[in-house]
Write a protein that binds this DNA or RNA. Structure first.
Lengths: 337, 337
DNA sequence: TTGTAGGCGTTATCAC
DNA sequence: GTGATAACGCCTACAA
């Protein structure tokens, strides 16, 4: 539990090389000029001692950590896992490290707040928040303190910068696809905005567009995948329904599992759509028709925007809504009745 | 790019509260005794200024960071994503933060080495390495420097502590299942150990056990999922084969996709097995027969072991091989020919 | 209980 | 080109 065997410092290296610690500092930091011969001796000494720069001490005096903090709600979810990877890569290409604070999906808002505070303690230079439930009000205090970008969710709060995929566009486009196929009675598995600021607006957009196009809509409230059995029971009670729109690929697959159990054929008896297009569920084995979010792009834009903020520039857009794309699979087809 | 607006320090708080910085330090760190009235004033002042402890400075003097470094090869894969989450949670429960260094799966060994060095620069107190390709020789120098645990891969190097799922057991058990069903001609999609220290031994164990049980084995070398088309072509050239064992769930699904394209029925024409049991591919919709790795347990054990090492204790086992479990789905059945 | 005086490992600013 | 020296923000004896 106690401090480990002390790491060698520039002072140790200096002694061994027979120079002052200033010289060592210049050599290892690459600033200032040092004689070629001296540089060699220092490098050798450092090598012998296994010296590695202490980023903590460096941050102390430089007032910089070259670190951005990323808060992800649940890295075990494909969506956030991919987003995290994209963020990490992009940040590295800008010379920034990433420190991650993760919830497990079961964290309360209070815990999420504490996680953000931890990142501030570590003196990350900026924050990227990826959570579909943390309310904007909780984020604002942090955004006022250091550059902050909300990624992966449609956040339009005035004092928060954000990068996300346009949920309205996606939901509407998917609804268009369903109507274009000829469906007139459609069920939408909706999610309250209070449960998710992504799936909420998304499913709302689906229902709205369906109605605009003249379809009749049955809204089934289904925030959690575990409730798939319930959706199936309710939806199958309405034989006029020929298509079902789910709030995410995972919800869609959970529903497909239920249909399989009940021997309902897809897409013959029922068309089904998903949403996200991330991870293993895009397998052609399932062939799920869905809306694909450009997750890598979200990650890249989020980091690029953050770097602009760090450089004191104004980002191009306060709220960047990126476009996704429709992926037509084998789970949707014209209605047979 | 420059330093942000300076954060308030204990000195600022001290001035505002009209006390010395020592008092503030005692209050915020919770050590030493402070008068109740004084404590209140300090807390108020801290609140007003928005003071947040500087973990960097604290680490500087304490020679401790309460941080463990986790290197994961690719957080976007379900296996590593889940492992990362499990590690993070467990570490938090022990009072440690986690700093993650991630590759994208396309990193060269040299880059992975550099990533580990970055973690050392940050003065993490211990290391958890999760990578199926980084050779032990690269890890040893770090393990000599600070407590290190390799998680999720069968690492039996003498000077490295490790926690993993027993690949021999899993491969053999899965092979037993196949033979027990009556299959006598089986294809195994093998992976060279040089490509993966998990899938390599695992597939080798499958082939070995199959032969021990009297089955004839066709080994198809297939490190990458993109090669699934090739496997299918080769395997279907051997009509006597009635079962195929893949190195992972993802490989199995890639293969299933190919079979679907070629109208080969599973499990009627061919039985197929996977391996891992992590993430969305376990969906009953696919019903893949596979070996399930206890990933949460691996994460917990890895952290617990690390904490023991940090406390100067000897871990119970140098190499902990955990047991997985067989999950029988609908992709395996007795052979029909 | 409270204040004073180092010192942690680095970088930066000066003289030399 | 090189070497003292002063911070950086915090903790910790030790003294008052």
């Amino acid at each position: 539990m106690a401090e480990r065997h002390r790491n060698p410092t520039i002072i140790d290296v200096a002694e061994r090389a027979g120079v002052s610690k200033s010289v060592v500092s210049r050599v290892v930091s690459g600033r200032g000029s040092v004689g070629e011969e001296t540089r060699r001796r220092v490098l050798d000494a450092a090598q012998d001692l296994g010296y590695v720069v202490n980023a903590v001490a460096r941050a102390m005096v430089a007032h910089r950590t070259y670190t951005v903090g990323v808060f992800v709600r649940d890295a075990a979810t494909p969506f956030y896992g991919h987003l995290l990877t994209a963020l990490q890569e992009r940040a590295a290409s800008h010379g920034y490290r990433v420190v991650t604070a993760t919830g497990s999906g079961r964290f309360a808002v209070a815990d999420e707040h504490r996680a953000l505070e931890t990142l501030v303690m570590l003196r990350v230079e900026a924050l990227i928040v990826c959570s579909g439930i943390l309310p904007a009000a909780q984020i604002v205090p942090f955004a006022e303190r250091l550059p902050t970008v909300v990624a992966g969710r449609p956040e339009t709060h005035g004092s928060i910068t954000s990068v996300f995929c346009d949920e309205e566009e996606g939901g509407a486009a998917l609804a268009d696809h369903v109507v274009d196929l000829g469906h007139r009675n459609v069920a939408v598995i909706t999610v309250p905005v209070s449960n998710s600021v992504t799936m909420g607006p998304r499913t709302a957009a689906m229902a709205r567009r369906l109605r605009e196009r003249g379809a009749r809509v049955l809204e089934v409230v289904g925030p959690h995948r575990e409730m798939a059995g319930g959706w199936a029971t309710e939806i199958l009670r309405h034989p006029e329904i020929t298509a079902v729109m789910a709030p995410s690929d995972r919800h869609a697959v959970a529903f497909l599992e239920q249909l399989q159990l009940r021997n309902v054929a897809v897409p013959q008896d029922l068309s089904v759509t998903g949403y996200d297009g991330i991870g293993d569920l895009v397998s052609p084995l399932i062939g799920l028709t869905h809306w694909r979010q450009p997750i890598e792009l979200i990650g890249e834009r989020a980091v690029d925007t953050l770097v602009r903020l760090l450089d004191g520039e104004q980002p191009p857009d306060h709220h960047q809504a990126l476009s996704g794309s429709l992926v037509v699979g084998r789970t949707t087809a014209p209605p047979t009745r």
